[in-house]
Design a binder for these strands. Structure first.
Lengths: 349, 349
DNA sequence: GCGTCAATTGTAAACGTTTACAAAGCCATT
DNA sequence: AATGGCTTTGTAAACGTTTACAATTGACGC
């Protein structure tokens, strides 16, 4: 079967302990030079690979962290997952992606992410022995106390993506500020009729983007216009947009001059919906998305969006996590990163 | 610390073996009903979670498989990764995504996937104890013998995505057939000047899409036209397209009537490149991509593409893998799945 | 020749499980 | 009363490491 320490010990006529030391220790410490060379040669010859289970069981360290998320594979979240992964490899860790969507197919099918961490993160991620956790949470989660999330006690834990006003480690994006930039841009262009396109329910009441939108509209003395989508994907954005335009025409209601979409996928869907109904972008309706996924820049009419400092967020989160693993009693480490509005043709004046 | 079997044993005044049996065995086998109930109650009370490392070390099973890939997070591959993940959860497994790109930052940055499995899959995935491996390989790999890939000996292994003409388990996509459909469509529309847009080098000589393109063009007595891209991403597609159009204009050379792009990202980039240079799609140039990533359907001019049966491929691969784990001596299990051309506006006549 | 020290190696326990085997208890059959 | 079989439980070894501690060796200074 697979080679183990004992096999090397047999062949070299050394004890298993010496073999272990010869393989692990840096330089020629703890073991003579000749032994070191011999052991390593034999290890290579018989293709020895350490059994990580045995090692981890003894050391209590797995060199694996868990990335908890609601959605690892759609464009924006995939950027984050990729970054977390690459950082992991660079820092000598493996990462297990624990995707809440996987655990709830029906929810995934419906495209809704209103998932309960406690119920979907069932036994496997809880029982597995991770050295740390990076959790990217959803906006729908915002009102809950991050600290209440069920997780292995005393496992180092860092939150990313969306803010929760808690005193745990986190590297968050300032969605509120991003939305302010969008609204200043649109209002600054002289627009008076601006809608926001986002899911209803809990998300609507919690989302910092909605808060920024509301405040800016109220400050300008303008009424709020909410276009609802069932979920934050392309298809829902398109369906909702087509429906909205047709209704507006039936009612003789004017379309808004601009629509601020909760994310780029919805914006892309809305864009296509406007194409479907023959509404010109940006002449009749201006469009702004959020997240800066790659595709926004490639449309015939490139779509304005808000760029998120994903790389910085992820590497900071990793720094925080490594600090916490080294020094468990550290004070909470927190950073809130500013996004950056990117104006493209879809909202140019 | 964390609760373990011994803690339950102490509290119930049973032996550790009985506790283990009470927790694991189905029904009331091997253990009396009362004991079973008692043990489970105490386990819940003290929040017992089994230590997966200890268990796996003993049983030799980790209930984890590895997904080997060159790129887990771009749109098309993310679809596959998601499907593999969801299937894993549904079947009671965890999946570790071992991404070759993570291991080679420079390559990732360059957007080139010409990575060597042997060198990038270094120690971690080799040493980790996986029950099985699903490997999604790249076209650039096509000429090599799949069987030569370095991997833990005797670990069940299934190949997906691209064919390698080997006798190992695989669930492959018939890219050749997909490309035939594209070429029949374009030639059937009466076009005479058709280019293919793909990376040069090894990829160009190996790719079954190129083979289909060549054969069909030769059969029609038409010359091959190759537009090279540096890598198979949007930005490279755009840059290459802009460059090609400008050169053509400078040389007074006519543009091809259609371009068959190696994948959708390149097609989207090319589409944008044609917008940049003021070339109309599909009136002047027709465009066909490959993979059917979601974005293609949402552009102002929806892009024709080839839909891959990703879900079927992944669930079949999982079936194969589970069969192989159960029955190591099974004959090679193989299936080659047909893609399906989707004609959209970008190549309508 | 003896004690001290450093360098190297070995012994054995531990990490938390699972499981083969043995043991004990009980009941029914002879 | 002895035998056999069934149910339930316990004992102990094993999975492959790491590491505290002990042991051995040789060199060296006195």
């Amino acid at each position: 079967m697979k080679a183990k320490l004992q096999d090397i010990a047999d062949r070299t006529e050394l004890s298993i302990a010496t073999v272990s030391r010869a393989l692990r220790s840096e330089q020629d410490a703890l073991v003579s030079h000749d032994t070191r060379v011999l052991v390593r040669r034999v290890a290579r010859e018989i293709g020895y690979q350490p059994n990580l289970l045995g090692r981890s069981l003894k050391t209590g360290r797995t060199n694996t962290i868990s990335y908890w998320t609601f959605d690892a594979f759609s464009a924006y979240y995939a950027q984050i997952a990729r970054q977390i992964s690459e950082q992991a490899v660079a820092r000598g860790y493996s990462v297990a992606i624990n995707n809440a969507r996987d655990a709830s197919h029906s929810l995934a099918a419906a495209g809704t992410y209103e998932t309960d961490f406690d119920s979907t993160y069932a036994d496997i991620p809880m029982a597995a022995h991770y050295d740390g956790i990076i959790a990217a949470c959803d906006v729908s989660f915002a009102r809950r106390d991050f600290a209440l999330v069920k997780r292995p006690p005393s496992t180092p834990w860092v939150g990313i993506n969306v803010s929760y006003d808690c005193d745990l480690d986190h590297a968050f994006l300032d969605l509120y500020d991003g939305a302010l930039q969008v609204m200043r841009h649109l209002l600054g262009g002289g627009l008076r009729s601006i809608a926001i396109m986002i899911r209803g329910g809990k998300t609507l009441s919690c989302d910092p983007r909605v808060r920024a939108y509301k405040e800016m509209m109220e400050a300008a003395g303008l009424p709020m216009q909410h276009i609802e989508v069932e979920a934050h994907g392309r298809s829902q954005g398109r369906a909702s947009m087509v429906n909205y335009v047709e209704n507006s025409r039936a009612l003789g209601r004017a379309l808004p001059q601009a629509i601020f979409c909760v994310n780029d996928e919805v914006a892309i869907g809305a864009y296509r919906g406007l194409c479907d109904t023959g509404v010109r972008v940006p002449d009749e309706v201006r469009l702004v998305g959020c997240d800066n996924i790659e595709d926004t820049a490639y449309h015939a009419c490139p779509i304005s969006t808000v760029a998120m400092p994903v790389d910085e967020m992820c590497s900071t989160a990793w720094d925080f996590l490594e600090n916490r693993m080294r020094e468990p009693e550290l004070a909470p480490q927190q950073i809130v990163l500013k996004p950056q509005l990117i104006v493209r043709e879809s909202s140019q004046f």
